[in-house]
Amino acid sequence: MSPSHRVLLEPSVVLHHRPYRDTSVILELFTRSHGRVGAIARGVRTEKSKWAGALQSFRPLLISWSGRGELVNVNAVEDDGAALFLSGVALTCGFYVNELLLRLLERNDSHSDLFQIYWNTVTRLGQGDEPDITLRIFERHLLQELGYGLQLDRCADRGVPIEPDVRYSYEIERGPVAYNENSYGVSVLGSTLLSLARNELKNETARRESKRLMRAVLGHYLGDKPLHSRELMQRSSALITKAS
């Protein structure tokens, strides 16, 4: 779907911005009805610009734009509610969520449910909820929206329901199969799969195993290029452990 010629006050968020020429910025927006949109905002890096402060990540915005093709022109920007101030670990996790969307979403591919999930995720990060749980739930929804949803309730080989106390091998693009040492799949307990399906992840094992599972599955779709925000997360958490 190519973007229409003129879009008015579309709920949007800035995923990434980079300076362009002397006074403009190129934005990667995530919008409710048009998905990821590349846009250029002209003349915003000047002292008199009204929007300079507004065009930051993690702020709900209403953006009007015009044009077609790879980069549309931003015509107006308005605040759509209070900004979320992410700081510290939550901010690094926010970068990670943005980087996943940048890497996995195609431009101009509408994902309106994912837009709402994105806001729920960022809001939960801002409130200081456990990032390990918030991020896993986001990743699961993201994969589902992209059509790569995980199979978490039934065995892929025999079709029987997952048993909490049984160990499985999760094979990417197939699902959980009976555990065997030679499988290339990720080894997980049935209880981990079930709690991931219920968005709970209450215990430590479930959190650790689902992190490893998600990393393998996302890695499959992301390809070889590493996620920069994940590197930063690892380095910051190493610093925090060193400090305490």
């Binding site: 510290g88 930063l232 910051s236 610093l239």
Partner: peptide
């Protein structure tokens, strides 16, 4: 006072804290 500037400030704070 941008998101990147905040991330930088936070990281340096963690670095200096000990």
């Amino acid at each position: 006072p941008t998101v990147e500037g905040e991330a930088t400030a936070h990281y340096i704070n963690e670095l200096v804290r000990p």
